[in-house]
């Protein structure tokens, strides 16, 4: 594996599967009384968050601590686009503190790439979400969750039919998942209003549909994306009501899903907008599993990036 985890595009299929296998083994270990492994003892991991995301930060923090790493949380208030400390100066600070790994969440697409490609610091960089670009560990934990539920916990995702529904245009989760799920052999269908799809979406190799109701029972996985309410003001869709009606996962659509289909959501959910409460809480929902699996997948990523020389 590379020294950094910036984009799913940097992982080969074999590396991705190996990461999932490692995560599976770590998940088993952490189910035993063993809560903590000494693997990264003496290593310092900085959670560098330029955006509030308590759940992602906590997940990385738990993963790092279970591997005995020292964790420093570094929150930079406000967007870096407003005048404040620059990414470069922050990186130089981290270098001075001797960070072995930096987990970065940033509102600008490509921020993790910049951190990794400039000579500002020498540690490994893990992209924990950069703008509307990618969120690789989210995609890995999603693939892991799909594999646990539908693929007997091993191998690839060949033959599975995955629908990703909602604001694909602004979703880093969607970008990473499109790359990873296809790499692992799944067939991906994007379902969204045309305004919330990139104009060049046909270059992604997915099926694209504007209608959520047709062939609903053909999906093995329905992954709902978070819709930000601000999008409405930018005229991406007319109203929340219309969005929920046309693209929300409600009880009627839930009933049409096939018996083995699972429902996913990266969180945080807008209940009643992209997903109804009964869908989120149904027995098809694996949303809580996703959160739990996040820790094991992030442990695997940290181990594979920082465990070796």
């Amino acid at each position: 594996m590379n020294r950094h985890l910036l984009s799913i595009a940097d992982l080969s299929k074999e590396e991705a599967i190996s990461l999932l296998d490692t995560a599976a083994e770590l998940a088993r270990v952490t189910e035993t009384p063993v809560k903590k492994l000494p693997t990264l003892r003496g290593r310092t991991i900085v959670n560098l968050f330029f955006e509030d995301s308590t759940r992602t930060r906590i997940s990385f923090e738990a993963a790092a601590k279970r591997l005995s790493a020292d964790v420093i949380n570094f929150s930079v208030k406000g967007s870096s686009l407003s005048k404040g400390e620059s990414l470069k100066d922050t990186a130089l600070t981290l270098q001075a503190m001797g960070a072995d790994g930096v987990v970065i969440r940033h509102p600008a697409s490509g921020a993790a790439h910049r951190l990794a490609s400039q000579k500002w610091m020498s540690g490994s960089v893990i992209n924990a979400g950069d703008g509307t670009h990618e969120h690789p560990t989210q995609a890995l934990l999603d693939a892991f969750t799909i594999r646990e539920n539908l693929k007997e916990r091993s191998g690839d995702l060949m033959g599975l039919n995955v629908a990703i529904v909602g604001d694909v245009l602004h979703s880093r989760v969607a970008r990473s998942n499109v790359l990873l799920l296809q790499k692992l052999g799944a067939k991906v269908t994007l379902i969204a209003p045309p305004t919330l799809l990139p104009v060049a979406v046909n270059s992604w190799g997915c099926n694209v549909k504007y209608d959520f109701d047709s062939d609903l029972n053909s999906f093995d996985v329905v992954m709902m994306l978070r819709v930000q309410r601000e999008r409405m003001e930018d005229a991406f869709f007319p109203s929340e009501r219309e969005y929920a009606r046309r693209y929300g996962l409600n009880a009627a659509r839930l009933a049409q899903l096939n018996s083995r289909c699972i429902v996913m959501h990266p969180g945080p959910m807008n209940r009643g907008l992209e997903i109804s409460a009964d869908s989120a809480d149904s027995d098809k929902s694996v949303i809580v599993d996703q959160v739990k699996n996040g820790v094991a997948v992030r442990m695997a990523a940290l181990y594979l990036l920082l465990g070796g020389e």
Partner: peptide, 16 residues
């Protein structure tokens, strides 16, 4: 693997 004290001397190995 996760308990080794020589992990840093080589590329990370997959877990048994």
């Amino acid at each position: 693997t996760m308990y080794r004290d020589d992990l840093r001397n080589a590329a990370p190995r997959s877990l048994g």
